[in-house]
């Protein structure tokens, strides 16, 4: 399985729907997508990970990179994830403290800090 990416706008947020496997091979595509969005001036991102089957540290690195980029523009990067096996990876790396993780796109899109 490869990585699928699609973007849409919900209110003032840009939602990136990710599907498939995020690993050392596919993560560069996600990185490119996030970099492009930020370069186009989208600074409030929601990454919907409900369709993600596999995530490794390379993928985490890309998400952290995306967060750094939006923060440079006072933006935000929120995640949508309900899958225990994916959440576990955020927990063991301590990244649950770094990323706001939401149960739905609606919740993430209406959240403010």
């Amino acid at each position: 399985m490869d990585l699928s990416l699609s973007t849409r706008t919900v209110g003032d947020r840009t939602v990136v729907e990710v599907g498939g496997e995020i690993d050392v091979y596919t993560a560069p595509k996600l990185r490119e997508c996030l970099v492009e969005l930020v370069n186009e001036g989208n600074y409030h991102l929601v990454v919907d990970m409900e369709g993600v089957d596999f995530l490794d540290s390379t993928g985490l690195g890309v998400l952290v990179g995306g967060l750094k980029r939006v923060r440079a523009h006072e933006g935000s990067l929120r995640l949508v994830c309900n899958q225990e096996r994916i959440l576990k990876i955020f927990r063991i790396t301590g990244l649950t403290k770094v990323f706001p993780i939401h149960a739905s796109v609606d919740e993430a899109a209406s959240a403010t800090d």
Partner: peptide, 15 residues
């Protein structure tokens, strides 16, 4: 490496 790659090796070991 790109900025986010720097920590990835260490993060991999942490995982």
């Amino acid at each position: 490496a790109a900025e986010e790659d720097e920590d990835t090796g260490e993060m991999g070991l942490a995982v």
